[in-house]
Amino acid sequence: MTPTEELSFQMWVSLDPSECRTRWFDHDDPTRNGDYEVLSDLQKIHPGEICQQPIAIEVQTVSGEPASNTSDAFLNYDATYGFACANADQGSRSCEDYRVRFTCPKEFCQVSDQCRTRWLNGDNPSEEGDVESILQLLKTFPGQVCRNPISIEAQTASGISAKHTGDTFLSYDVTFGFACINGRQKSKQCEDYQVILTCPSDFCQGCRTRWFDLDDPTRRGDYETLLRVQTLYPSQVCSQPVAVEAMTVSGVPAHQTGDVFQVYDAARGFACVNAEQPGGNRCQDYKVRFTCPLAFCSV
């Protein structure tokens, strides 16, 4: 298993499928004042890996012995603060070296079955045409493109859907990607296209933020935009996410709701407008989560 795969796998671990547990964290050593595994410190060191308000904490030595089986006295041991063992409280000896794991609300571990990239524009039609192949996108946008997309959507750089341009396409599928050849067009010139990919959920599992629910669809719609998340929670989301997931607050993936989305990409976030829904329906209440470059989780 590569380091990247290991990080992706260890974002959370649960022995009980009904629970949502983080991996084990060992930030401190008892070499000085003691061993302090403080929740607020761990959240800063490992953004996105621990929920804001854990509901339980487990503590054990780095060798796997439950803290309750040791003879140490603990200064703090709760899900709100974290864990603290002070050497001064142990008499003539030092604390053991401890690690902690948190249990989070179930929604922190909810996984959508797919996520969407940002709009990608790796070519222009100045020569033979506009070719946005999966292979070339993987090279041009490393870390931002999945190898096995579920679906692909194309539009012009100005936002017009490919199906409304009048161009004919040599390829428009998830196996190759998208290709428009100038010589095949009546005008002998393709539009400049960009594509967005829908990827399997495993593409989203590297460095994910928590779920954000900043708006309700009671007025114009539900706007869970990246800019708004960055404004309200600047330290909890990266500046350039590589993927976004959206689901209703009850856990239904966005693509299964039947709603029409005005915005749904990693660069802008998510927006569902009530006036654009079929049958006069109102948007569902959504939450979003972003996948960031791995470097964001290692700061």
Rank of each mutant, 00 (worst) to 15 (best):
V242K: 11
E127N: 12
A267E: 09
W119V: 06
N182M: 06
S201T: 13
N87M: 06
C115P: 05
Y223A: 14
T165G: 05
P278T: 10
V59P: 03
S250K: 13
V244T: 04
G251F: 09
Q90S: 05
G122D: 15
T225K: 11
G206V: 09
G159Y: 02
M1Q: 06
V260H: 14
C199I: 07
V131W: 07
Q205S: 12
E65P: 00
C292P: 01
P54F: 03
L170I: 01
F83Y: 14
Q230T: 06
R208A: 13
G64K: 04
T231K: 14
L39A: 02
I50Q: 04
Q185P: 05
V62G: 01
I181Y: 07
V273C: 01
V244N: 00
F261E: 06
S158I: 03
Q185M: 05
R228I: 01
G251M: 02
R99L: 07
I50L: 15
N87L: 01
V244E: 01
Q236T: 00
Q284M: 14
V263D: 09
P234V: 03
T80V: 09
N76V: 11
R219I: 10
G177V: 02
N148F: 04
Y193Q: 00
C146A: 02
D123N: 12
K44C: 05
A67Y: 13
V59F: 06
I152K: 10
I50G: 03
R116G: 00
N148D: 14
S250L: 10
Q110K: 10
V145D: 07
Y264T: 03
T140A: 12
C292D: 11
W211H: 07
I160Q: 15
P149Y: 10
W12M: 07
T31M: 09
G159C: 02
D16E: 15
R99H: 03
A267P: 04
V195R: 03
V13E: 14
G91V: 01
Q240A: 12
A67C: 15
Y286E: 03
P200V: 01
Q114E: 13
A179V: 10
R219N: 14
V145W: 06
K139R: 11
Q205W: 00
S68W: 13
E6G: 01
F74H: 08
L120K: 05
D215V: 08
A88R: 13
D285H: 12
E224G: 09
T165H: 07
A79G: 07
S133R: 01
T248P: 10
Q114K: 05
A157R: 07
N33P: 00
C297N: 10
V131N: 10
S201F: 06
V145R: 01
G159Q: 11
C283T: 04
